[in-house]
């Protein structure tokens, strides 16, 4: 997937970009002050430059030696992260149970070993366990179901 590019080159260049952006953003939006009286922008700018510089070093190093290529998997992170996103979207709108079902069902797609019946049982088990732990044991005020419209 990465072609012939090794992973340190990519990682280093990403850091270079992130660091440079961080430093420039800090310098443009926040007062730098002087070395004696530093403003809120000075330290972030310095750290941004540090990230960029170290990123550049990582990228340069990677040109000098053989680095293994990245092993990227696409589906596992996609389903796991979508599950979390599903929770984040549904929780404030519809309450805990729908959000819980979203994260469980979507993330279980990452490993297709779970048959529909056991998935249903898992969902049921978690729907009972989660309210018990968080609502009853910890006393957190969370809506179980919600209808926002």
């Amino acid at each position: 997937m990465m072609g012939r590019v090794n992973k340190d080159t990519v990682g280093g260049l990403v850091l270079l970009a992130v660091g440079a952006w961080f430093a420039i953003y800090a310098a443009m939006h926040y007062p730098l002050g002087s070395l004696r009286r530093m403003g809120p922008g000075m330290f972030p700018m310095g750290m941004g430059i540090a990230v960029a510089g170290l990123g550049l070093l990582v990228a340069l190093q990677s040109l000098l030696r053989e680095v293994e290529k990245a092993d990227i998997r696409f589906w596992s992170p996609l389903f796991v992260l979508s599950g979390i996103a599903g929770f984040a979207i549904l929780m404030p709108l519809f309450g805990l149970i729908p959000a819980l079902l979203a994260v469980t069902i979507i993330s279980s797609l990452a490993e297709l070993k779970l048959r529909p019946v056991s998935l249903a049982l898992l969902c049921l088990g978690l729907s009972l366990l989660a309210p018990f732990v968080f609502r009853i044991c910890l006393g957190l005020q969370m809506a179980m179901f919600n209808w926002p419209f």
Binding site: V80, G83, I84, A85, F87, A88, I89, M91, P92, L96, A99, L100, V103, T104, S107, S108, A110, E111, K113, L114, S118, L122, L126, A130, F134, L138, L140, M142
Partner: peptide
């Protein structure tokens, strides 16, 4: 593990949400 990990993710989500009651933390 395929039974365990959805439960782990769920507890991570609820745990994060419960610290602020704001979906931003889950994001």
């Amino acid at each position: 593990y395929h039974i365990l990990f959805p439960a782990v993710l769920l507890f991570i989500c609820i745990g994060a949400y419960s610290t602020t009651f704001n979906a931003l933390t889950v994001w």
